[in-house]
Write a protein that binds this DNA or RNA. Sequence first.
DNA 1: TCAAAGTCAACCAAAATCAGTCAAAAATAA
DNA 2: TTATTTTTGACTGATTTTGGTTGACTTTGA
Lengths: 248, 248
Amino acid sequence: MLTEERYAAILGILAEKKAVTVLELTKALQISESTVRRDLTALHRSGRLYKVYGGATTIDNNYSKDEEDMQTKRDLYPEEKVAIGRKAAELIERDDFVYIDAGSTTLHIIDFLKENGAAFVTNGMQHAARLSARGFKVFIIGGAVKAITEAVVGTEALQSLQCYNFTKGFFGTNGISTKSGFSTPDAEEGAVKSAALARCKNAFVVADRSKFNKIAPITFADISSATIITGRLEDKKYLDYTTVLEGE
Amino acid sequence: MLTEERYAAILGILAEKKAVTVLELTKALQISESTVRRDLTALHRSGRLYKVYGGATTIDNNYSKDEEDMQTKRDLYPEEKVAIGRKAAELIERDDFVYIDAGSTTLHIIDFLKENGAAFVTNGMQHAARLSARGFKVFIIGGAVKAITEAVVGTEALQSLQCYNFTKGFFGTNGISTKSGFSTPDAEEGAVKSAALARCKNAFVVADRSKFNKIAPITFADISSATIITGRLEDKKYLDYTTVLEGE
DNA sequence: TCAAAGTCAACCAAAATCAGTCAAAAATAA
DNA sequence: TTATTTTTGACTGATTTTGGTTGACTTTGA
C-alpha cells in the first residue's frame, strides 16, 4: 500500500468519524502501530488533521468561527508558514507567558499549540478569537482596532503593554535586512511591535522567504534583538547577526 | 475513546438534558468517576459547561429558564432583536462616544449604524470586528477573553474602562426585574457591565421579551439606572420604575 | 445544631500511549 | 546481479492518562 493511499484512507475514515484512535487505524488498514503514528505525524505536520493523545481528530470542528478565509486569503507561502508555525509552537514551554503579534504568519502558530499551562497576550483580534476557541488562557490588549488587519494599536495599546512581562514573544515582519533590522509599513503597528518586543525576555520573528533583504518604512527592532524563525534560510549572512531557527 | 470524543459526548448529553450528574456520565460513557471529574473540570475551565456540586449544567440556564449558547441565542427572537437594534442605532447622534456591551442583542445595533462621526468602545470581540469592518472608529478594551461569549473581562478590563467618558452606552442583560434590577449569569461579565455603565452619561439596556421578570445570579445595575429598549412592552409596571423605549 | 451520606480534589500506581532507535524488509539505483 | 536508500515493524524508556483510594469538604435530614 502506497504512502499516499494510506494518507487518503486515514483522512477518509477521519472525515466520517471526526475522530479516530491509533488502534482503530491499525485494524482498519492492517498496518503496524508505528506506521500509523508516523502517518498521523506527517498529516498533522502538513496541517490535514489534529493529532491528539490516542489518535487524531479533524481540523475544522475545533474552530468556532468563520474567519478561516481571512487566513487563506493572505497566505503567500502557506506550506512554509505552516512549518514556521510548528517550529514556533515547539518553543513554547510549560507556564510560558507569551505575546503573539497580529499578522498572518503568527496565526499559524496557534494551530500547533499544545495545552501546557502557557498564557497568551495578543493584539490580534483573530488571534485572540482562535486562541480562545482552542481553550487557551488569553488576554487581548486594549486600544484602537485597525480596520484591515484587525490589529489593536494606539496609545492605549502601548500603555496596556507596559504591565506585562513576557517570557517569549512572536512577531511578524514585512522586511528583514542586516542594516535596517525588522521593518513594517505601518507606523502604529510598528510602535506596538516595538513596545511589545521590549517586554519580552526572548523575542522571535517569524518570516517566510519573501521577507529577507527587504526594507519597509518603519524599523521596529534591530536585527540582533530577535531570533528569526523561517522555513529554510537561503542567505547565510544573517547567521553573523542573529540566531536563525529553520522549520522543515 | 479519545479525550475529545468524551468531551463531545458529555456536551451532547448535557445539551439534551441541561444538567447531568457525575454518576450518570460514568454509566453513559463507561468511564471512571475520576475521569468524569477531570473532564468536567477541563470543560468548565474552557468555559463549555458549568461544574456544580454533583455534576454539571449548561452554561447559562442556571436561573433564567431556557437559555442556550451564543449561537442559538442569536436566533431566539431575531425579528424582535432586529427591531431593538434599529431603535438603539437611531439614538446615536453625531460625535457621540458610545460603549457597546458584548452580547447577541447589542450585536444587532451595529447593522443599523450610520456614519456620523461617532466613536465606539466595546468589550465584545465580534462587535469590534464588525464595527471595524463597517469602517467605524472603534476601540476594544483590554483584558482576559472569555471562551464562549468572546467578551473581554477581568481586572484589566475594569481598569481600561476608567479612562473613558461615554455619552451613551448599550448593554445586554439576562434578567430584568423591578426588585433585582438588571442581572446576568456571569460574575466577571457583570463586573464589566457595572463598571462600564458607571462611565455612561446615558445608559440603555436592550432586551427582548424573554428577559423580563427573570433574575440571573449577578445584578449589575439598578432598574432605574438605565433606559430599557425592547420590542413591545407587555408588563406595564416597569413604566413606574424607568423609561422604556419600544422598537418597530 | 449535629451526624450521616454524598461528593470532591489530590495523590499514587497501573495501564496506555508516545517518540526515538534499530535492524529487517522493500524499493530503487547502479 | 549487487549496492544504496527508503520504508516498515518491533522494541525501549519516557510521558500521559486512567481509575482506585484517601482524607477533606458539602449537602441532606433529623
